[in-house]
Amino acid sequence: MTLETFTSDVLPLKNKLYRFAKSILDDGELAKDVVQETLMKIWEKRQDMGKVQNLEAWCMTITRNFALSKYRLKDNQNEGLDMTNERWSSHSNSPYQLLESSDVFEKIEGIVSGLPLKMKEVFQLRDVEGYAYQEICDITGYQLSDVKVSILRARKVIRQNLQKIYDYERNG
Protein backbone atom coordinates (compact mmCIF):
# COMPACT_ATOMS: atom_id res chain seq x y z
CA MET A 1 0.00 0.00 0.00
CA THR A 2 1.32 3.36 -0.93
CA LEU A 3 0.75 6.58 0.91
CA GLU A 4 -1.73 7.54 -1.82
CA THR A 5 -3.94 4.49 -1.29
CA PHE A 6 -3.65 4.97 2.43
CA THR A 7 -4.88 8.51 2.05
CA SER A 8 -7.69 7.53 -0.28
CA ASP A 9 -8.87 4.25 1.31
CA VAL A 10 -7.97 4.28 4.99
CA LEU A 11 -7.87 7.87 6.10
CA PRO A 12 -11.53 8.57 5.16
CA LEU A 13 -12.55 5.93 7.70
CA LYS A 14 -11.19 8.10 10.48
CA ASN A 15 -14.57 9.54 11.54
CA LYS A 16 -16.17 6.13 11.79
CA LEU A 17 -13.20 4.83 13.75
CA TYR A 18 -13.34 7.88 15.98
CA ARG A 19 -17.03 7.42 16.75
CA PHE A 20 -16.47 3.77 17.59
CA ALA A 21 -13.53 4.55 19.86
CA LYS A 22 -15.45 7.35 21.49
CA SER A 23 -18.47 5.12 22.12
CA ILE A 24 -16.21 2.74 24.03
CA LEU A 25 -14.24 5.37 25.91
CA ASP A 26 -16.75 8.23 26.33
CA ASP A 27 -13.82 10.54 25.82
CA GLY A 28 -13.13 12.47 22.63
CA GLU A 29 -9.50 13.17 23.38
CA LEU A 30 -8.69 9.54 24.16
CA ALA A 31 -10.68 8.44 21.13
CA LYS A 32 -8.57 10.69 18.93
CA ASP A 33 -5.41 9.08 20.33
CA VAL A 34 -6.86 5.68 19.59
CA VAL A 35 -7.58 6.63 15.99
CA GLN A 36 -4.05 7.92 15.59
CA GLU A 37 -2.57 4.73 17.00
CA THR A 38 -4.87 2.70 14.79
CA LEU A 39 -3.89 4.54 11.63
CA MET A 40 -0.21 4.20 12.45
CA LYS A 41 -0.68 0.50 13.11
CA ILE A 42 -2.48 0.04 9.82
CA TRP A 43 0.36 1.78 8.05
CA GLU A 44 2.91 -0.46 9.78
CA LYS A 45 0.92 -3.52 8.80
CA ARG A 46 0.34 -2.40 5.24
CA GLN A 47 2.11 -5.52 3.93
CA ASP A 48 -0.65 -7.66 5.44
CA MET A 49 -3.37 -5.67 3.74
CA GLY A 50 -3.49 -8.03 0.78
CA LYS A 51 -4.79 -10.79 3.06
CA VAL A 52 -7.51 -8.58 4.51
CA GLN A 53 -10.94 -9.27 3.05
CA ASN A 54 -12.84 -6.40 4.56
CA LEU A 55 -10.64 -3.38 5.01
CA GLU A 56 -13.19 -1.39 6.98
CA ALA A 57 -13.95 -4.21 9.41
CA TRP A 58 -10.23 -4.79 9.86
CA CYS A 59 -9.66 -1.14 10.70
CA MET A 60 -12.59 -1.21 13.10
CA THR A 61 -11.18 -4.27 14.86
CA ILE A 62 -7.81 -2.60 15.34
CA THR A 63 -9.55 0.49 16.66
CA ARG A 64 -11.51 -1.67 19.05
CA ASN A 65 -8.37 -3.36 20.37
CA PHE A 66 -6.67 -0.07 21.07
CA ALA A 67 -9.80 1.41 22.58
CA LEU A 68 -10.36 -1.58 24.83
CA SER A 69 -6.83 -1.50 26.17
CA LYS A 70 -7.31 2.16 27.00
CA TYR A 71 -10.73 1.40 28.45
CA ARG A 72 -9.22 -1.19 30.77
CA LEU A 73 -6.56 1.25 31.90
CA LYS A 74 -9.18 3.87 32.55
CA ASP A 75 -11.38 1.38 34.25
CA ASN A 76 -8.64 0.10 36.50
CA GLN A 77 -8.33 3.57 37.87
CA ASN A 78 -11.94 3.48 38.95
CA GLU A 79 -12.79 -0.11 39.71
CA GLY A 80 -12.25 -3.49 38.17
CA LEU A 81 -15.14 -3.92 35.79
CA ASP A 82 -15.10 -7.01 33.73
CA MET A 83 -16.39 -6.70 30.21
CA THR A 84 -19.07 -9.31 30.50
CA ASN A 85 -20.42 -7.63 33.59
CA GLU A 86 -23.86 -6.36 32.84
CA ARG A 87 -23.76 -3.95 35.77
CA TRP A 88 -24.05 -0.29 35.00
CA SER A 89 -20.61 1.10 34.52
CA SER A 90 -19.23 3.56 36.99
CA HIS A 91 -19.39 6.55 34.72
CA SER A 92 -23.09 6.15 34.12
CA ASN A 93 -25.31 9.02 34.97
CA SER A 94 -27.97 8.46 37.52
CA PRO A 95 -31.53 8.82 36.23
CA TYR A 96 -31.81 11.89 38.38
CA GLN A 97 -28.85 13.54 36.63
CA LEU A 98 -30.36 12.55 33.32
CA LEU A 99 -33.54 14.38 34.06
CA GLU A 100 -31.65 17.43 35.14
CA SER A 101 -30.02 18.08 31.78
CA SER A 102 -31.91 20.54 29.68
CA ASP A 103 -31.56 19.00 26.29
CA VAL A 104 -33.18 15.71 25.34
CA PHE A 105 -30.21 14.84 23.12
CA GLU A 106 -27.92 15.15 26.07
CA LYS A 107 -30.22 12.96 28.10
CA ILE A 108 -30.13 10.29 25.42
CA GLU A 109 -26.39 10.62 25.29
CA GLY A 110 -26.31 9.99 29.01
CA ILE A 111 -28.43 6.87 28.68
CA VAL A 112 -26.19 5.45 25.96
CA SER A 113 -22.94 6.17 27.75
CA GLY A 114 -24.36 4.46 30.81
CA LEU A 115 -24.83 1.18 28.97
CA PRO A 116 -22.53 -1.71 29.79
CA LEU A 117 -19.58 -1.95 27.45
CA LYS A 118 -20.74 -4.77 25.24
CA MET A 119 -24.16 -3.20 24.70
CA LYS A 120 -22.53 0.13 23.96
CA GLU A 121 -20.29 -1.39 21.33
CA VAL A 122 -23.06 -3.29 19.63
CA PHE A 123 -25.43 -0.34 19.83
CA GLN A 124 -22.85 1.95 18.24
CA LEU A 125 -22.16 -0.48 15.42
CA ARG A 126 -25.74 -1.36 14.70
CA ASP A 127 -28.01 1.50 15.61
CA VAL A 128 -25.63 4.34 14.81
CA GLU A 129 -23.38 3.01 12.06
CA GLY A 130 -25.88 0.56 10.59
CA TYR A 131 -23.64 -2.50 10.26
CA ALA A 132 -25.13 -5.91 9.54
CA TYR A 133 -25.10 -8.32 12.47
CA GLN A 134 -22.52 -10.49 10.74
CA GLU A 135 -20.20 -7.55 10.21
CA ILE A 136 -20.50 -6.75 13.91
CA CYS A 137 -19.41 -10.29 14.69
CA ASP A 138 -16.43 -9.86 12.37
CA ILE A 139 -15.39 -6.65 14.05
CA THR A 140 -15.91 -7.65 17.66
CA GLY A 141 -15.46 -11.39 17.57
CA TYR A 142 -18.74 -11.87 19.45
CA GLN A 143 -21.13 -14.68 18.57
CA LEU A 144 -24.06 -13.77 16.35
CA SER A 145 -26.59 -14.71 19.02
CA ASP A 146 -24.62 -12.66 21.53
CA VAL A 147 -24.78 -9.62 19.28
CA LYS A 148 -28.53 -9.96 18.80
CA VAL A 149 -29.20 -10.39 22.49
CA SER A 150 -27.01 -7.41 23.33
CA ILE A 151 -28.71 -5.12 20.87
CA LEU A 152 -32.13 -6.14 22.17
CA ARG A 153 -31.08 -5.51 25.76
CA ALA A 154 -29.55 -2.18 24.87
CA ARG A 155 -32.75 -1.07 23.20
CA LYS A 156 -34.77 -2.20 26.20
CA VAL A 157 -32.64 -0.21 28.60
CA ILE A 158 -32.80 2.83 26.34
CA ARG A 159 -36.54 2.56 25.96
CA GLN A 160 -37.10 2.36 29.70
CA ASN A 161 -35.04 5.47 30.18
CA LEU A 162 -36.71 7.29 27.32
CA GLN A 163 -39.97 6.57 29.07
CA LYS A 164 -38.66 8.34 32.16
CA ILE A 165 -37.66 11.34 30.08
CA TYR A 166 -41.04 11.29 28.41
CA ASP A 167 -42.83 11.28 31.74
CA TYR A 168 -40.63 14.08 32.96
CA GLU A 169 -41.19 16.19 29.86
CA ARG A 170 -44.93 15.68 30.17
CA ASN A 171 -45.15 16.47 33.84
CA GLY A 172 -42.36 18.98 34.17
Binding site: N15, Y18, R19, Q36, I108, L162, I165
Partner: peptide, 26 residues
Amino acid sequence: VEDIYFQYLNEKKNEKINFPDFDVEI
Protein backbone atom coordinates in the same frame (compact mmCIF):
# COMPACT_ATOMS: atom_id res chain seq x y z
CA VAL B 1 -39.12 11.56 22.81
CA GLU B 2 -38.94 8.50 20.56
CA ASP B 3 -38.71 10.67 17.50
CA ILE B 4 -35.96 12.69 19.07
CA TYR B 5 -34.19 9.42 19.79
CA PHE B 6 -34.20 8.35 16.15
CA GLN B 7 -33.12 11.81 15.19
CA TYR B 8 -30.30 11.44 17.67
CA LEU B 9 -29.23 8.15 16.09
CA ASN B 10 -29.16 9.79 12.71
CA GLU B 11 -27.10 12.73 13.84
CA LYS B 12 -24.76 10.56 15.83
CA LYS B 13 -23.55 9.10 12.56
CA ASN B 14 -22.42 12.50 11.38
CA GLU B 15 -20.11 13.18 14.26
CA LYS B 16 -16.64 13.95 12.98
CA ILE B 17 -13.22 13.72 14.46
CA ASN B 18 -12.77 17.37 15.14
CA PHE B 19 -9.12 18.08 15.69
CA PRO B 20 -7.30 20.62 13.58
CA ASP B 21 -4.79 19.17 11.15
CA PHE B 22 -5.52 15.58 12.15
CA ASP B 23 -4.75 14.28 8.65
CA VAL B 24 -1.68 16.42 8.30
CA GLU B 25 -0.33 15.11 11.56
CA ILE B 26 -0.93 11.47 10.62
